[in-house]
Nucleic acid binder design. Structure first.
Lengths: 209, 209
DNA sequence: CCTACCGATCGGTAGG
DNA sequence: CCTACCGATCGGTAGG
């Protein structure tokens, strides 16, 4: 019980052999920033809010990161990567219906893991600089291509209707998927059921067959 | 050419017989606020930004409105009213498929009239006070009920599939509709076609019939 | 990661 | 709707 640190969160600081800040403070900053950006928006969050919740003083943030916007870019950029990673893990050899069903499930699972984080990824990129926005748009287009491809494949194979407007279909599908961050609860035990019902609705439509 | 006003937008001020501010300045404030809230978010917009673009000084705003948040509440509240009004105008005696198709068209038309405004209505209500948020949630639930009712009616009449999970269906439908503010262009001449393709996708689904 | 601080800007108000 | 202003707070930096 000796050697108690006076600050609230100064304990456990690792001794780095070089000048890099490779301890967990930076990760904690990103974690806190994600939550606050989700709750108050990027502009509504101050670097003081973030610093206080990390347990350091405002100026100390800048020992770990270039600035407030750099935190947002990191959250958004790695966020899209996460969606790509999970949808990319869906086997290519599945038939279009089952492949799309799996992609829907993976997308909804990523959202459900942290809907607030997903909202930041989906919406707060508008507050980035023009250059960063261009990067984000490129990443999003790359993600959308996974869905464009499976739809195109399904139409060609005859699994999906040839009357489908593929462009509008992607917009409907990704819109409903992304909007799930508004209503999905984290750790909902019915998540797997919801994913299947969601896919049923999209695949079969409303009208009686 | 005498009597030229020095300010940029001070011309045309009407002479009111009572103490109410019933001229167009307040309307212009709401209009400018809508655009700026859409571009920079509520927290990223300053009352100085709004005042400058209206053509008055910052402090003068408070002769017309209680404060910054009151502008947001007015935009969001009247915005939801607008959606309700248009969807409510769809004839009740249409068969469920055509009634839902018309409701989809009306919703998309309202969004397309001003997607940036729609984004404010859909997202910026989070920055309102707790009490105002409660009001907004109530209004949104009321709007969602229009869609819940037509889906329920369609399932009962056999027009819509009995296998449908009605709760998930509403989430998918309204999610894809609201997300349209992300991609709809104002004054797109193909709007009517897009509305029909959108409804086709939702009603018929992706899978071949 | 702290001390001490910068210039700029914030939402809002008193009193015309 | 303006003049003149309030206290509070902003993102960020110099120099340890």
């Amino acid at each position: 019980m000796t050697d108690v640190v006076k600050g609230a969160s100064n304990a456990g600081r690792s001794h780095n052999s070089d000048e890099r800040t490779s301890n967990g403070t930076r990760a904690m900053m990103i974690e806190v920033a994600t939550r606050l950006f989700g709750e108050r928006g990027y502009s509504g969050t101050t670097v003081r809010d973030i610093a206080t919740q990390v347990g350091i003083l405002p100026g100390s943030l800048y020992a770990h990161i270039g600035g407030k916007e750099e935190m947002l870019l990191e959250i958004v950029s790695s966020g899209i990567d996460r969606f790509v990673e999970m949808v990319d893990s869906v086997p290519r050899n599945l038939a279009p219906r089952e492949r799309l069903r799996s992609m829907i499930r993976e997308h909804l699972r990523v959202v459900a893991a942290n809907p607030q984080w997903a909202q930041v990824v989906f919406h707060q990129w508008r507050y980035l600089s023009t250059d960063s926005q261009t990067l984000v748009r490129k990443k999003r287009r790359n993600y959308e291509k996974y869905f464009a491809d499976v739809i195109s494949e399904g139409v060609q194979s005859g699994d999906f209707s040839e009357n489908l407007d593929q462009h509008v279909t992607i917009l409907v599908l990704l819109g409903s998927l992304n909007w799930s961050a508004e209503w999905l609860s984290p750790n909902d035990p019915r998540l797997d059921v919801i994913c299947d019902l969601f896919a049923d609705t999209v695949l079969n439509g409303l009208v009686t067959r």
